[in-house]
């Protein structure tokens, strides 16, 4: 059975239940596309969802977004964040709402664990892009945020299959992708790209999601390599999914690192220093996830 057939078999019967992007996000994207849109227009749009306003205010004031003084008004937050970061933040809040991970189905898998990994990958991808002085570093954040969407969709639609995949990963000591292909006939990267395509994300994002584990030179581009490396960094920093077979890599031997080193000026990036630099944000990432999940003030799990 081809991967396309497996996708159809898994998701077609429940196509009408497939999550759709919230109107707020779609409207915001349209608004931001207009170069003449005012902050007032954007804030009026966001104010339609007071829950969203509250999350944006909390996140804007968090250490992860590097705030220097308290932001008290949504208009100021919009100016401070900039269009792309605001778009990413709104999408982040929407995604957390769209995929409430039900721990009674699988107590080992929680929203906390999943979003910590996604946020860490997103944040690290953006930081790497900034260190490499690439334009539009926020787009790398978006790729990181969406890279594992297939996992959460598979869990939501087929929790038993998801559990079987995880147990196979552990029992046979194989990678998650191998177990997914073996059990479901398709992996989370294909599933994620399938969902992102239905959400009409652009081709670069689709390639990042589809290829972040597929480190073939023919499939590689800079955005994919950066998100793939950020994914590895998140795992190495202890922000992977618990059952993923993560080992301490020699960073320079990672496929994505090799590709970047060969095709891009590293701007003096040293692997160990980079690991220190990125890992110092782990606690801030965890706190941001607590804010997203409405658990701020509670102890981390």
């Amino acid at each position: 059975m081809s991967k396309e057939d497996s996708l159809q078999r898994l998701f077609n019967p429940r196509r009408h239940q497939m999550p759709t992007l919230p109107t707020l996000f779609i409207e915001l994207q349209k608004t931001l596309e207009n170069p003449f849109c005012s902050n007032r227009t954007i804030s009026d749009l966001i104010k339609k969802d007071q829950g969203m306003v509250s999350k944006i205010m909390q996140l804007s004031n968090s250490a992860l977004y590097g705030k220097r003084q308290e932001i008290k008004r949504i208009d100021n937050a919009i100016t401070y964040l900039g269009n792309e970061t605001l778009r990413n933040m709104v999408l982040q809040v929407c995604l957390v709402r769209m995929f409430p991970i039900n721990t009674s189905l699988l107590p080992d898998f929680s929203a906390q664990i999943f979003w910590k990994h996604s946020l860490a990958t997103a944040y690290f991808a953006e930081q790497l892009a900034m260190m490499l002085r690439l334009p539009k570093s926020e787009d790398y954040y978006l790729g990181g945020l969406l890279h594992d969407l297939g996992k959460v969709l598979l869990f939501q639609f087929h929790p038993e299959l998801f559990e079987e995949i995880v147990l196979t990963t552990i029992k046979e000591n194989i990678s998650g992708v191998e177990a997914e292909n073996k059990i479901a006939g398709v992996d989370h990267a294909n599933i994620g790209a399938f969902l992102a395509e239905s959400w009409k994300f652009d081709n670069t994002i689709l390639k990042v999601i589809a290829n972040h584990h597929l480190l073939l030179p023919s499939k590689m581009n800079l955005a994919t390599a950066i998100v793939s490396l950020a994914n590895d960094f998140a795992n190495i920093c202890g922000l992977g999914l618990p059952w993923d077979n993560t080992i301490f890599y020699d960073i320079t031997s990672l496929g994505a690192w090799e590709w970047i080193a060969k095709n891009q000026t590293l701007m003096g990036m040293e692997p160990d220093a980079l690991l220190f630099e990125l890992s110092q944000h782990v606690a801030e990432i965890s706190r941001s996830v607590d804010v997203l999940l409405g658990r701020a003030g509670e102890s981390n799990d």
Binding site: I236, C237, G238, F248, D272, L275, F276, S279, V282
Partner: peptide
């Protein structure tokens, strides 16, 4: 306090 990977880096370094 620090991620385990840094503990390894410190031990090795």
């Amino acid at each position: 306090v620090q991620p385990l990977v840094l503990f390894k880096l410190v031990c090795d370094g």
